[in-house]
Design a binder for these strands. Structure first.
Lengths: 364, 364
DNA sequence: CTGTTAGCGCTTTCAC
DNA sequence: GTGAAAGCGCTAACAG
């Protein structure tokens, strides 16, 4: 005998019993297969479900079906506001498609990331969105290529070779656009400031783009006092000419950052310098380590969201990645693969960043 | 016959067959009941599980058990960075307890909130954390009191009467502390600026606390030029004496906000005025609607996170709610109720906010 | 120490 | 039009 079904939610069997038909018929009803039943039966089922407040149990459904309508998400560090924008986008897409999101924060820890992914799999997710903490490429590549595993997409990161869908910003183009802007604003020297780049593809891409831009348009770094002719826009062609020198400053902690910035500012004394931060947190680190950055004598810009950048300090020129769109695009791509039979080749999708100019680069 | 078990993940039956024992024994093994089996069997199971890469299916487990180790979360608007901090806290607690989070954004929409909750229930969550979009008290109260429903806790909001655990900030104390600070800084007039308050308990609480503070310590609002003796700290008792006038400015859109602020600033000409925003977004709205707010002639403060406030404008004095702690506290309380048999009376837990003073109230 | 059995809530052949 | 029955993967009496 069933254990005191007194206070438990009604199951399909209860509905069937109440209506006086079989579970099969109820199941058919739930899936809209009304052709297979009399109008009268349909009515009665309708009424009974309403009366009992019956709702189908998704877990049981998923156990039978081979899909759960669950997508697992791992986020490198969810306390980052950027992450919440990514989630916003995923949610919008998933809500529209009746998909639920199982979200795990991995605290910037690759080992936790692996554990989180395994755990998500145990929960039978139909797919995985990974905003990787980095340092996990081997694991992720193996995961993506092993069959039996559900489709995966990486977000704001990519893995090479491309063994799954990767949604990122077009970082190289963004860096170029920002540097064009800085040249036009007649800066002499630009410093790309970033946390260690090695493990995070996004950072590597930016650093690489930065270096090649400087190599192409640049003057030698540290050439303080050199007679660079910076920032002449050729109005005929619209092309930007002029030279700018630059360097990359990687830091591990605030002390290192402070030391680095002081050295650079000393070397560049008398030149117009702009600090280009890899992200919002980096910008905050700069303020913390080198408060003079806030007083308006040096230029500032960053990869950051408009919302944050616009009212930070005097307004910080930024490259907004539109993380909401990134999240939505990623979820849409993944869902298409899982549920719509999309089997196009995996691709690396690079979405453009938007350059938003504020006082920090124009009023220096 | 089983449908081509070729490429499917191994089930407990596969392990049992491979080892040559019954599923029961495997199940016991999984739950650490080693007393009920020979050391040798244990070894063999161990090896086989490893070899097959077997992992128990959580859905199937949950179907049997009456718990899913899933907690459902609805967030009023996940694009708000405050939300991501809340999530960070919940995650920390849930990761430690092996709980997964099913997260739904409800886009500030009460109807979506109800739908999200129903949907979460269908997924058999063991409990619910609701950061309500507001205007849903009847539904939530009914939900919380109807038995058969899983435990619920509200986060950064409460419902009255208290029919579930409610984790919020001690908003009244925060408002008092901020106003004491403003009095000490010799402001003459303070304006509490907020989006419409009616539906959101947090806002109502703040407005109420604000009004009663002004009523107690206040001078008449609009008394421009009155000879108030503001901000004398009584060093003997540490108590703050002095008067301050104040008013509440509710706005629906930027235009309304602009009009309101212009009126007030005109009325208060010649007095030291401070704008006290209900949250970060409100502060941004102020900047947008009334750019003069940024130029240092009026005081600014807000309920906001340190991270944001510290580097916004010249640094904005804020009441930091420590959302990470709020999220963690909430998840811990809920988990205790669900899994640890905590059946203490429901409570309204008010966590203190931290006053962080920056230039916006001291250098005016 | 180990297995048999029934069943969680639902879906899906196959048969009438 | 409708239903009986088997089974998804796992658990838990109960019986040895």
């Amino acid at each position: 005998m069933r254990q005191s079904k007194a206070n438990r939610k009604p199951s399909i069997a209860d509905v069937a019993a109440a209506v006086g038909v079989s579970k099969t018929t109820i199941s058919r009803y739930l899936h809209g297969k009304y052709d297979y039943m009399s109008a009268e039966t349909k009515e009665r089922i309708d009424a009974t479900i309403e009366e009992l407040g019956y709702r189908p149990n998704k877990m049981a459904q998923s156990l039978k079906a081979s899909n759960s309508h669950l997508i697992g998400v791992t986020i490198a560090n969810i306390s980052n506001p950027f992450s919440s924008q990514l989630l916003k986008g995923m949610q919008a897409e998933c809500r529209a498609r009746g998909i639920q999101l199982l979200v795990s924060d991995v605290d910037d820890n690759p080992a936790l990331e692996r554990a989180a992914i395994e755990s998500l799999l145990d929960s039978q997710v139909d797919g995985l969105i990974v905003n990787t903490a980095g340092d996990n490429d081997d694991y992720l590549t193996e995961f993506a290529t092993k069959d039996g595993n559900p489709p995966m997409a990486t977000l704001d990161r990519f893995i090479k070779p491309v063994v799954c869908d990767c949604i990122t910003t077009d970082n190289a183009a963004g860096v170029d656009e920002m540097l064009d802007h800085l040249v036009a604003q007649r800066f002499d020297h630009v410093v790309f400031v970033t946390q260690p780049a090695a493990a995070i593809t996004t950072r590597v891409t930016r650093v690489t783009a930065f270096r090649s831009y400087i190599a192409a348009h640049g003057a030698a770094a540290g050439a303080a006092g050199a007679a660079d002719i910076a920032g002449a826009v050729d109005t005929a062609t619209g092309a930007i000419s002029g030279t700018i020198s630059g360097e990359v400053l990687e830091y591990n902690d605030l002390a290192g950052l402070a030391t680095g910035l002081e050295r650079i500012m000393a070397e560049q004394a008398g030149r117009r310098v702009c600090l280009f931060s890899n992200n919002e947190d980096g910008m905050c680190d700069i303020f913390e380590a080198y408060p003079a950055a806030l007083d308006g004598h040096i230029g500032l810009c960053a990869f950051a969201t408009k919302r944050w950048a616009r009212y930070s300090g005097r307004g910080i020129t930024c490259l907004d990645q539109n993380p909401v769109r990134m999240g939505r695009t990623c979820a849409a791509k993944l869902a298409a693969r899982i549920y719509d039979g999309d089997d196009s080749p995996y691709e690396l999708l690079e979405l453009p960043a938007e350059l938003c100019v504020y006082a920090s680069t124009t009023e220096v």
